[in-house]
Design a protein around this nucleic acid. Sequence first.
DNA 1: CTGTTAGCGCCTTCAA
DNA 2: TTGAAGGCGCTAACAG
Lengths: 326, 326
Amino acid sequence: MTTIKDVAHHAEVSVATVSRVINRNGYVNEDTRKKVEAAVDLLNYKPNSVARSLFKKQSKTIGIIVPDITNPYFPELVRGVEDYLIQKGFTTILCNSDEDPEKERLYLDVMKQKYVDGAIIVSNTIERDLIAEYDMPVVALDRSIHQDIPTFAIDNRSGGRKAAEHLLEVGCTRIGHIKGPDKVENSDNRYLGYIDVIKQQDWFLSSYVVEGNFDQKEAAKVTKELLQSHPEIDGIFAGNDVMALGALKAAESLNLNVPEDLAIIGFDGIDLTEMTKPELSTLSQPIYQMSREAAEALTALIEGKMVKEKENVFPSTLIKRQSTKR
Amino acid sequence: MTTIKDVAHHAEVSVATVSRVINRNGYVNEDTRKKVEAAVDLLNYKPNSVARSLFKKQSKTIGIIVPDITNPYFPELVRGVEDYLIQKGFTTILCNSDEDPEKERLYLDVMKQKYVDGAIIVSNTIERDLIAEYDMPVVALDRSIHQDIPTFAIDNRSGGRKAAEHLLEVGCTRIGHIKGPDKVENSDNRYLGYIDVIKQQDWFLSSYVVEGNFDQKEAAKVTKELLQSHPEIDGIFAGNDVMALGALKAAESLNLNVPEDLAIIGFDGIDLTEMTKPELSTLSQPIYQMSREAAEALTALIEGKMVKEKENVFPSTLIKRQSTKR
DNA sequence: CTGTTAGCGCCTTCAA
DNA sequence: TTGAAGGCGCTAACAG
């Protein structure tokens, strides 16, 4: 590895001068600049970012904490972040928390020790006070953490409403909901959106709502039970696409045709929804866009700019596909 | 951030002593050790890894280069790597190369500058000579780079054979193949496996093989064409699961029933294959296991241990599901 | 416009 | 068994 000293030697100047030209700050004579640049090229010099970090107390790297990259919602999210950051000169560290506060803390510790410049966090469990301990710029993605922390998330409630309304529009007369876990804002708000429109229906029963834990298998199980105890249900709004898939499986196992006997709509808009048969209607999130903007906000924060909008809510858009076509 | 100096002050010893206790090397009196440890706890001292890196010229972080985390094959791969490494005290940097040599080079540059300890690379295009320039431990995952570089990959050819054999076993009489891109070892070898068993069939025609570029849409298109020009085909082996999905779509658009009219089998064993209807048969790769072992080998390399096996070939296992049941 | 120097926080000889 | 000091590579005063 060639160092700034080597370059200085070669160009017959001091390291300070070399530093000046590579950082383009401070005055430096045109000729000596050329000499230095020549030496840099010749030696293929690349500044050592570790030394730089030590001095500047920042590392041009950020961490992203997601529950599990293996969950189909997250790869695109991470990609949006990484794409933006690399092009801004940042490198991104991937952290899989499994929603375990223990692990979240561990990752935060590591980040702090490495002078990570900031973090993008997807978490239900993390506390604002914990984050405050680390004293680094943080942005919340997909779910909020605290009103003080800039958040980038979807408008769940209006999405839930759109889903229920769509089901009504295509002629469903009894609509059930497969809800995500309780006390999780994403699932609670989607549920509330559903309630907003369904509560006016005289047929509504609270037993039309069951809990699927955002999990395909669990959703398949509870949907089957729901459909067995309420055979009159002809439309289902699942709290996310993965559960919609479970619902599809359940319908299949009961020999119900989708969409003829049962219309199904999901939430998220992951690629998977295009791969099923029938293809799934869903409320699509601008995942890439959202994560990109979160990354943008984080870099702004890092550069000391105040972020004006704390609360960045994105609209979901209804994608009508075969599973609700009738 | 509290530093080693603070601790030294508090414990009324020199920084050298503190360093000795936190690194457990060199002699240190039992009593002074206790004093130091108390101070460490009290101040909640965490050594600054950047300073450490500068001195040691290593950073306890590794980079993983994958084409695109958004491709459903990679999240599990990355997870396997990250899981192993975090527990060994390493942090992992995610890099999406899009198979672009330019980007690969960029990422490698960044890694070098950050004293990254090693890299796990998934790439078809990268050259051994390029890697040699960077002089860091490297392990190849999913596809080989060069015989000098430890590789962790699936036995594609025998997998291809198993796929073709299975199709024969379930009674297919004309079997087509949707191949991945040319000159890419994974697709070429899967194709060769198919050829190994199919070439003995007197009905075999080279036009039974078409190219789907490992892409769902492309695969759907070429499969449709294949099926139209060769309606006698009643079995398809797709070079990966994503293309198998495309084939499924093609069958659907042609009103062919799977598996009755057309049996389909994929390759990889990604979760998606369980989510389609019918569920897809496939040759499943031990993705998690493979990536974990790759990570293990990389850490061994980093610790200066020689890795005995350069070539680590994993078997694929046949998963029979509805798409080939008849 | 350029060079000297003092750190950034840590580790490791070298003496004591 | 412990401390002093130099240095990892770079940057930012401060002089000149």
